[in-house]
């Protein structure tokens, strides 16, 4: 349980199959370097990200949660990302009202051709979460 090494943030990423996951794939095939702090979960659409998954990750102690979807207007299911946007706004409002740090949750539009943007987003988020320090939920067993 004791951490002797330097804090490495752990980021859980929920990525849509068609855009951001493919963008992440492109980052890999393009041999772009980015921090290994992200654990990717692929879903068919950002509109399929149940806010409960995000809450579960947060309460379990994930340091950051990234939701990646197609740019507005580009959703392969027409409107999933627009609905995801509303859900994320609602979820962050709830977390803020409950006294949680809503800035651990990021929503980003990253297309299949934006491998570099994916790598940059992971770099940016890893550093932002490193600056925040560990999610206090990591040690809160009574929630």
């Amino acid at each position: 349980m004791t951490e002797t090494t330097e804090f490495e943030p752990k980021i859980i990423a929920f990525l849509c199959n068609w855009c951001t996951y493919t963008g992440a794939d492109l980052a890999g095939t393009s041999r772009l370097q980015y921090p290994p702090n992200v654990r990717i979960i692929r879903l068919m659409c950002s509109g399929a990200v149940d806010p409960m998954y995000v809450l579960k990750a947060d309460l379990a102690g994930a340091d950051g949660i990234l939701i990646g979807g197609c740019h507005p207007g580009d959703c392969h299911y027409q409107e999933g990302n627009y609905k995801a946007r509303r859900r994320v706004i609602a979820l962050k409002e709830i977390l803020k009202s409950a006294g949680f740090d809503e800035d651990r949750i990021w929503l980003r539009w990253i297309s299949a051709s934006e491998g570099a943007r994916f790598a940059e987003t992971v770099r940016e988020m890893t550093e932002a979460m490193r600056a925040k320090g560990p999610n206090p939920m990591k040690t809160m067993w009574a929630v």
């Binding site: 349980m1 409960m52 809450l55 579960k56 309460l59 379990a60 609602a90 067993w141 929630v143």
Partner: peptide
């Protein structure tokens, strides 16, 4: 993971999910 786990688990998840479903 946390050294201990409240039982039943997911109590906060329950309340926050309910808020997420119902608050609007």
């Amino acid at each position: 993971q946390k050294g201990a786990q409240r039982m039943p688990p997911d109590t906060m998840l329950f309340h926050l999910t309910r808020q997420n479903h119902m608050a609007l």
